[in-house]
């Protein structure tokens, strides 16, 4: 554990909590892509199956359980509890265009051709593109509430901190997880355009982020 990894995990947790509380308090999931949240729930489910097979640390186990619970609770709020506020017509990204290539790639490019390893690889590849329905939705409607942009900012910051964590681990432990690093770089690139808009529009102005 290093400071980049810990801060990264905390940003990830903050992002998920921001989103959950936003929906819970406003009793609305307007502007939120339910598809992205289902994909993240699928990411955590397929990655954390090792909860049943290996123990790493109390921290690791607790964080995994918290992420899983919050991911499913968010999906529950969007699709069941506050379903009437869900903008399904704007959330029109075709997730099969992500799931099929990601599933195919995880069979082709993995560390070991074993069920748990393939599912872990699938979760890594899927996480790198899971935010696309949300970014697509913002591009389509041309705006996002500032709280939604704070959620995306912390999610992007988590990714950027994980890159720093890998640089650190490479130099201190000789750690290099090729699949995670390549996917992580791809994922972080998706946030660059958003980061630019966040700093130039959201933090300087107030209220919603509108696209030019």
């Amino acid at each position: 554990m290093n400071i980049f990894r810990l801060l990264g995990d905390m940003c990830h947790l903050v992002a998920i909590i921001i989103l959950f509380l936003k929906i819970w308090r406003s009793k609305s999931c307007a502007g939120i892509s339910g598809k992205s949240q289902v994909l993240f729930a699928l990411v955590f489910t397929t990655r954390y199956l090792d909860l049943f097979t290996s123990f790493i640390s109390v921290y690791n186990t607790v964080m995994k359980v918290v992420f899983l619970v919050l991911a499913y609770a968010t999906v529950y709020l969007i699709y069941l509890r506050f379903r009437s506020t869900y903008n399904s017509e704007s959330d029109s990204f075709r997730v099969e265009f992500l799931l099929v290539p990601v599933a195919g790639l995880s069979f082709l490019e993995n560390y070991a051709f074993a069920p748990l390893e393939i599912l872990w690889t699938f979760s890594i590849y899927l996480e790198s593109v899971a935010i696309l329905p949300q970014l697509f939705m913002i591009t389509k409607t041309g705006e996002a509430e500032s709280i939604t942009t704070h959620y995306l900012f912390f999610l992007g910051l988590y990714r950027a901190l994980y890159l720093a964590n890998w640089v650190w681990r490479y130099h201190t432990e000789g750690f290099f997880d090729q699949i995670a690093v390549v996917s992580g770089v791809v994922q972080t690139i998706f946030y660059c355009d958003f980061f630019y808009l966040y700093f130039t529009k959201v933090l300087r102005g107030s209220g919603k982020m509108t696209l030019p």
């Binding site: 990894r5 995990d9 990655r47 964080m63 995994k64 964590n165």
Partner: peptide
Amino acid sequence: EYNIYDHDEL
């Protein structure tokens, strides 16, 4: 020594 199959990150 680090084992690639451990997946110790979240």
